[in-house]
Design a protein around this nucleic acid. Sequence first.
DNA 1: ATAATATTTAGATAGATATCTAAATGTTAT
DNA 2: ATAACATTTAGATATCTATCTAAATATTAT
Lengths: 88, 88
Amino acid sequence: MGIQQTLKAISDPSRREILDLLKSGEKTAGEIGQHFEATGATISHHLSVLKNAGLILDEKKGKYIYYELNMTVFEEILSWITAFTGGD
Amino acid sequence: MGIQQTLKAISDPSRREILDLLKSGEKTAGEIGQHFEATGATISHHLSVLKNAGLILDEKKGKYIYYELNMTVFEEILSWITAFTGGD
DNA sequence: ATAATATTTAGATAGATATCTAAATGTTAT
DNA sequence: ATAACATTTAGATATCTATCTAAATATTAT
């Protein structure tokens, strides 16, 4: 993980859209894919990048894999930025 | 500008290092370049990306061009993140 | 067991980008 | 006006990455 991986991950618009989708709660890879025109393989790749960056967590439930936001890593970005803004 | 350009800009480690350098105050392109092994052309490219993203401002003073942080754009990133974290 | 479904992995390709060298632009000093 | 200095721009190249198709893995249902 680390800030580099995190910022690379959120620098792609499709991945940010995935994160936005997950705001409303956990979703399967398939449900996420339905919101895009890209193939399942492409979505899977993006999910993998987000997961390696620690931005999302996955949980296997039978046939499905559920993805959800991992808030803790957002804190890391937050602290990188507040180092500039001073937190106000 | 826009969040896309901003996040792309800060996803490169050299550019983040430039931003870190500018925390301590405005610096010329040459002064910034001295902190890196890269050529002046490369630094100039990074400065251009940061400038187009609105993260830095430039001011020409005679022979030199001074660069400084533009705090206002950091606020935009901040608000993107707090949309997830809820601001606490 | 076999078929159907969900998701990932492998391998290929096209487009993006970080970097370089060389040349161009603009400013100051001689 | 010419030389020296500061920075950018142009063009080339190598690496990175988003995307695709096809194949593999894993689970559930028949």
